[in-house]
Amino acid sequence: MRDTDLIGGFAKGLKIIEAFGEAQPRLSIAEAAKETGLDRATARRCLLTLAQLGYADYDGKYFSLTPRILRLGYAYLSATPLPHIVQPFLDRLSEEVGQSASVSVLDGTDIVYVARASQKRVMSINLMPGSRLPAYCASMGRVLLAALPETEARALIEAAPRQAFTPRTKTEIAELMTELQGVREKGHAVIDQELELGLCSIAVPLFGVKGRVVAALNIGAPAAHVPAAEMAERYLSVMQGVAGQLRPLLQ
């Protein structure tokens, strides 16, 4: 793609939208500029445009997104069959194992949840379709990164702001690349309280009919009930069974 094919203003508007999140549901012009790296004048124009079009509210100082913004995410969820295909399988899996189960896809340095069946809330944040987590320290993220060519996976890890969410979070590039190699060899990833203390998870890849990894499936459990060392023994077989059932249904 040539630079002349890009619409700069549109790209800047998307950066402003992505600056909002659970930790910052309201942004001033100065805060939006700081979060996006845009100058204040550009951030102001983008925010006022969103407000004019009904995608944001403005109280004179702070902007906040309106429910209208959900149209953008719903366009993807309604256009792709993946959530509709996997949801019944997730519901049955979650009921069978008594834990939450999810499916996500890779989006840059993050994973994005596309479907979820929740038995209980195992994280302090409320995960749902559309939720994002850093790929480098999530079980589904490591499965999806491991499916990429090594150079591409390394580039994404290098580009990620590798924050240590807990004392157990792996952030060093060499250590993460070793983890990915282990995922390729074992065919699954286990996370031991790297995203949040008290949470363990296990993930497997979901292959499509053409043999490529199209998504990842995971089960999350409280570490006090299921230690990381027991995750594979308890859940791997049933998860691989679900992945096998889904394979002929996924493109």
Rank of each mutant, 00 (worst) to 15 (best):
L144Q: 04
V103H: 02
Q87M: 08
I173V: 15
S131Y: 10
T4H: 01
V114D: 02
S94L: 05
R40C: 01
G220K: 05
T80E: 13
D57H: 14
G130E: 05
I111C: 00
L133S: 04
D91Y: 03
A232Y: 06
F207G: 00
A224V: 11
T151M: 11
G211V: 07
M128N: 14
K120F: 10
G54S: 07
M231T: 04
V105Y: 05
R168Q: 08
L6E: 13
D192K: 06
E185K: 13
P134D: 15
G8D: 13
R184G: 09
S28D: 01
R40F: 03
K61L: 15
E179M: 01
S201R: 02
T66H: 09
G208A: 12
L199G: 01
R68M: 07
F10A: 06
I219M: 04
K12L: 06
Y62Q: 14
Q99Y: 12
D3K: 11
G141C: 03
R154Y: 03
A30R: 11
A147V: 01
E230P: 00
R45F: 10
M231D: 05
P205L: 08
K170S: 08
C200S: 09
A43D: 08
I219L: 08
Y113R: 09
I111F: 03
A51D: 02
G21P: 04
L148H: 01
V213P: 06
V242F: 08
R184T: 10
T4G: 00
E196L: 02
T166F: 11
T80A: 04
M231Y: 06
D39T: 00
T166I: 09
M1T: 13
E150L: 06
K210N: 15
G54M: 06
A51T: 04
V238I: 15
L217T: 08
D59H: 05
P83Q: 08
R71F: 14
I219S: 03
L236P: 15
S124T: 14
M128R: 15
Q245H: 15
L249Q: 12
M128L: 15
G21L: 05
E179Y: 05
P83F: 08
S100H: 03
K186T: 14
Y74P: 00
Q251I: 08
L48M: 13
A223E: 07
V204I: 09
A117L: 11
D39L: 01
G37D: 12
Y235R: 10
P248H: 02
M140V: 00
I191G: 00
Q240D: 11
A11T: 08
R142I: 02
M239T: 07
G98K: 11
G130Y: 01
D110M: 04
H225G: 00
I16G: 02
T166N: 03
P81N: 10
E18D: 14
G37H: 08
L148F: 03
F207H: 12
V86E: 04
P222T: 07
G98E: 09
L27A: 03
V105M: 06
G187V: 05
A189Q: 06
A30E: 12
I111V: 10
Y74T: 13
S118R: 15
M123K: 07
R212L: 10
R45D: 14
Q181M: 07
K186P: 09
T109C: 06
R40Q: 10
V97S: 11
G60R: 09
I219T: 05
D110L: 03
A33I: 05
Q24L: 05
